[in-house]
Design a protein around this nucleic acid. Structure first.
Lengths: 200, 200, 200, 200
DNA sequence: AATGAATGAGCGTTCATTCAT
DNA sequence: AATGAATGAACGCTCATTCAT
């Protein structure tokens, strides 16, 4: 099948897929539009039928990913009987996600030298945003003590990101183990947290 | 004073300072050598009297930073009466460090849109490495229970990085508060962590 | 007609033509890729759609020229009844060739000051190679006495090059006259040459 | 002895010596002023105390060389009993000269790839000029028949240059043999040359 | 006179982007 | 809609040259 016969949707997806891999491999800053289209096999001009710039593909990638992650996290939240279960499920969802993305993982590992350039992947952003809302809600509902919601979300994200990173270096790696570690640490920490003064 | 009168040391420092800011603003990948020298007001060729490439400035920056952070953390470790104090002091050292770097902070904030690109700054790397050793030592000495040292270090770094990031967005911001939050969360979490099976 | 409408072949040829002139004018070493494309009126980047480097254009030029000169000399060799006629025809072919290249000639003259930088033009190389084989063959067949074939070829080339050079400075110039001079000198000289000892 | 104590004359000579080698190695066009001064061990700025540019060193080199070659050729002319001896001595002087310049020779050989770039060395120019006058004089005095003096000089130079080139590729090489070859060829050729019509 | 850092023009090359086909 | 050659801005880097020391 020549490129001509591919549907618009297929070409668009091909570009997005290529972009995801190349961003992961080279980092956003060092990725060129040419790198992306080279991976698709499409002609250079064709890129501009779908996206105006590198920035725009990246944005589309973010949106697409959020679309995949958000429903999973929402489902977990609904299923979760309590905050503990929700946190546990969120970590697990994130670790499962990066665990399953084998190709991405291999590419990233091949590259990382002394200097690691990390980009907020769409997945992290999705988790981050969703979680932030949930934590604020939990505090409002008294499910959580009155801690600083921004810092707490940040801590969750930081743990997820860094522990996930280490997890991926292990061979074989165990997403459940990582999720249990992160969950225990995070929840244990939450209980020890200083309460903010009540703003009555 | 013309650039010709400046001492070599001053010009070298001017380039390093500019590089730090530009790396922070644009990320390593998107920074060009010309971006750096433009900020110094020096002529383009002058850059190459001091550094062979972008990579080399970055490396110099790393080395210089490690030189500043490492002794601080070592001093804290020696002063610390126990693990709790050591962790607390480490968070505080890191938050103090980024707190004081006002200009860098303003620049980073100006840029960060939807996409945050984070680079392991020399400071983070220094903290990370030092800490990793300390945690392993603490476990070996029985000061810490037998937890996974890599994950634990990763969690510390993640919390420091992300909470520090949020802290910097606040005006005014309070490094002590952030350090207390991070310390409590982390230490509370450590106590709740699953022990690894003893490898007797 | 805009450059965009030109066929690929035309643009490629335009670059080759420009390169020939610029190499002749400035010498290979002092010619820059930009000198070449400036002469074509194409954009700088366009050069790299056709050639990877200055070296590559030069090579292409060599190949093209050899293709033009070699068949002419071969034809002469076949037509020639004897060695004298072959030498005469070869000089004539070379002088005709440079005589006809009016533009090249004007350019070279404009430049040559005290310092002449001469490059083995593709034409010279073509003549040289062809001739070397022919002289060796002539000796092997007893047509020529047993003289040093390398030196004899070199002498032919030297005479052709330098006499051709002088010829081009004359206005008007006479390729037949130059060819007659060179032929007589060369053939007269060959007869006076010391024979190498027979290696029987 | 530091560079400071060197006399002006010594530094000037050091630059000239370095320039000769570098020109021979890289060719005029590809030689940079930096290449030259690097070879001397002097500071870059110092070059400009002695010469205004690469062109000027080259010119000085020409002049110096002419000064060395001219007297030799003049001496030969005076000693020579006839035109034959003069030609023979001139070829010998030239071949001896390039033969003896061992270092230059080695350098040139190391470089020459498929593409030979030849520069009129000062020596060639000196021989050329001197010879041109002598040939004209010989014709005027009836020692030589009425041939074209420009072409004849050119032929001499061409033979000298190319045969000398080949000679240098041989190991070991024999300047006497080369000189004998060139002389015989040239003189044999002269006798066979067409006479120009007398311009009475 | 000698030094060597600063300068900025210019080079080879890559790149995002345009546009005729 | 897809193509890929043309474009020219911008990049990393080198160089001749200047000039304060």
């Amino acid at each position: 099948m020549g490129k001509r016969e591919r549907t618009k949707a297929e070409n668009r997806q091909a570009i997005l897929d290529a972009a995801r891999l190349v961003f992961a491999e080279l980092g956003y800053g060092e990725t060129t539009v040419r790198d992306i289209i080279r991976r698709t096999g499409l002609a250079s001009g064709t890129f501009y039928n779908y996206f105006k710039s590198k920035e725009e593909v990246f944005q589309a990638l973010m949106d697409a990913s959020a679309l995949r992650m958000r429903p999973r996290i929402r489902a977990e939240r609904i299923r979760a009987a309590n905050f503990e279960e929700f946190i546990s499920a969120s970590f697990r969802a994130y670790f499962d996600y990066i665990a399953q993305d084998e190709e991405m993982h291999r590419i990233i590992r091949r590259k990382s030298g002394a200097m690691r350039v990390r980009m907020d992947t769409p997945e992290v952003v999705a988790v981050f945003d969703e979680l932030h809302l949930d934590i604020e809600r939990a505090i409002a509902q008294g499910v959580l003590p009155n801690v600083d919601p921004d810092y707490l979300t940040a801590a969750f994200v930081g743990i997820a990101f860094e522990v996930g990173d280490i997890m991926q270096t292990r061979d074989p790696f165990d997403a459940d183990e990582a999720a249990e570690f992160a969950t225990k640490l995070f929840l244990g920490g939450v209980n020890a947290l200083p309460r903010l003064p009540e703003t009555k």
